[in-house]
Design a protein around this nucleic acid. Structure first.
Lengths: 354, 354
DNA sequence: AACTCCGTTGCACACGTGTTCAATGTTGCA
DNA sequence: TGCAACATTGAACACGTGTGCAACGGAGTT
């Protein structure tokens, strides 16, 4: 009879727990190094040194401290640690559409890589690709993160200045920054678009469609214009679509709108996700036969593109190379800046003729 | 000519920046409230009060402080703030396979919900669904997070004890905890499996397959056994598969292995992702006609299941309800524990006969 | 035996913030 | 005018940690 959603059942198992691990039963706070020091009968410094690599502690004291810490369940307070040493292990990650396959895969590998390097990932979800990410980055500042990775959206110039002033590394993926003082990681859009165009031309396509989303990110624009230029250079005709979000449904809508023109015999979707929607609509709604009747190429090589129902020919960028590039940028010394280009390959599958 | 991966181009734009915003040019650290206080000609307390809601500051001082803070680019240090007030806004999130659609969607909505509530998301990627998440949770302890959300894996009892002792809220999704002192959020697996079984029986399936992954999570086991029981009650035969990770490829492998038996006319895959692989292999590798020849039902209703190429009939759980349940659990008072059940619905699409 | 050197140890400070407490100035009322 | 009530302000403490510095003791060397 609730408003519509879920059944709730409540319990409260322990009325007044007599926890023998805690000496002072009221305190709900964490164990501190003072507690450990008292129990081990040493000074607090000794505790700190025990948990600091390369510090000078006698084996005897070390063992006593470790034993006491184990018994009390002591964990170093990273906040106090960071406050003191002012070297945080936090890396802020900003992204939108976290459930879209491309971003999700990036986030998956990035968070894993950070963890393996002993860095922690503070994740901030920019709801919309169009939304302003400045407040999110300022939030990351408040946590004194030493680096910020931007997966979606473009940080305004004021934010870049602030990063520079505070010594925060700013790493931007697939967003063209006009300023040279930011780490940038780019997929080789120019080459990828050229490969796609040449492949469609080789399949003897004469009139091709280019499908972009309405949020004209620099990456999408670069792919689309390069592709168009190459096709036109070789005497082909190009029709362009730029509406809607970067989503499956946009590909569907584009197919419905563009394939009314039956002369179109090829399509380059600047994102695999849109390519899959385009492909589905072409096959199931519009009875186009791919690749006999129509050739389709995507970009990104998301996992779903390899699924048997699609078998999409696409321009692939290696996720592991992309992630390695981000991690490499994190290692740069202060002031050192790089622009890294992620190479691309044409992955031949079954959606292009011949 | 590099080992294989990426082209690097290096610059170092600003040799010795004369930054007029910082008075002491060497200091690369963040602006503190002391800096702001000096500039505004007030005490540090006034600065703190200006940024504390409900504190007593005169309009004049407040304006001077805000102006100075703006000019200097001051951001409150959340680490020091948390250290002092010992009430952190951090929420630890542990999950594996972050790029699998189901987890990615959960993470997307959860991180967005947390952000909207003014809480921050500390993301820890448990590489493998099988890997031990205890060290990750201990890492979260070190950041003094007030709550931990576990999307994958099962926290050992010692961790649960530790959470209890330290007043950390532990929220577990779709993992059956035998202990009653943890917040648990479960999808209604029993009902879902029953709905799937009844639907296949109504389609006159006589011999059905159940597809699980090799990582026998409580959720998967509950779905599979309930389904098997119901089918057998009605005189149907059941064949079960339990191998491999929870992935598309597992569905493919299951189809190849199980569909050699041509009598099988129905399948329940306990996860949509596996269902899509099963479906693809059945159609494209084994020339089975779905739904005429074979009926398939999944579970979770991930976005891809609605794509035209699949149009998968599945048992759906609402992601927004799931997320709301997590956020609701975060609001519980200390010691209050709940078990929330997420309702499920059979979503009729095109992969079941009749 | 005296001295130097080195490993250990504890004290004290610093990190940046919120908040209590007493002091100060200001207003309102009798 | 005198006094109380009140808003505002700054000094001081606490949060939990890492580390420089001086003190200490034992071992090795002359």
């Amino acid at each position: 009879m609730h408003t519509g959603a879920l059944i709730i059942r409540r319990d409260r198992p322990r009325g007044s727990g007599s926890d023998d691990r805690k000496l002072n039963p009221m305190a709900k706070s964490f164990v501190t190094s003072i507690d450990v020091a008292e129990r081990a009968g040493v000074s607090r410094s000794a505790v700190s040194r025990t948990f600091t690599a390369g510090a000078s502690v006698s084996p005897d004291v070390r063992q006593r401290v470790l034993k006491a810490a184990q018994e009390l369940g002591y964990r170093v307070n990273r906040l106090a640690q960071t406050l003191n040493t002012s070297s945080s292990n936090l890396v802020g990650v900003v992204g939108a559409n976290l459930s879209s396959p491309f971003i999700a895969k990036q986030l998956d590998m990035l968070s894993l890589g950070l963890l393996r390097r002993g860095q922690q990932c503070l994740l901030l979800n920019a709801a919309d690709a169009r939304s302003d990410i400045a407040p999110l980055i300022e939030l990351i500042f408040e946590f004194r993160a030493r680096a910020i990775v931007v997966l979606s959206g473009e940080p305004p110039a004021s934010i870049v200045d602030e990063c520079l002033a505070n010594g925060v590394k700013l790493i931007v993926i697939n967003r063209l920054m006009t300023r040279p003082d930011t780490d940038v990681i780019l997929s080789d859009d120019i080459l990828g678009a050229r490969l796609a165009a040449e492949r469609l031309l080789a399949a003897r396509c004469r009139k091709v469609a280019v499908v972009c989303s309405g949020s004209l990110t620099p990456t999408q624009v670069r792919r689309a214009t390069t592709f168009s230029d190459v096709v036109r250079e070789h005497g082909g005709a190009v029709v362009r679509w730029s509406e809607g979000p970067t989503a499956y449904e946009t590909g569907v809508a584009a197919a419905h709108a563009l394939l009314a023109d039956e002369q179109i015999d090829g399509a380059f979707c600047v994102t695999d996700l849109m390519a899959l929607g385009f492909l589905d609509a072409a096959r199931h709604d519009l009875q186009r036969s791919v690749p006999d009747d129509l050739s389709v190429i995507g970009f990104d090589d998301i996992p779903q593109s390899a699924w048997k129902a699609y078998d999409l020919t696409t321009v692939g960028q290696s996720f592991s190379v992309l992630t390695d590039a981000v991690l490499a940028a994190l290692d740069h010394d202060d002031g050192e800046v790089s622009t890294q280009m992620v190479p691309v390959t044409l992955i031949e599958r079954g959606t292009v003729h011949k």
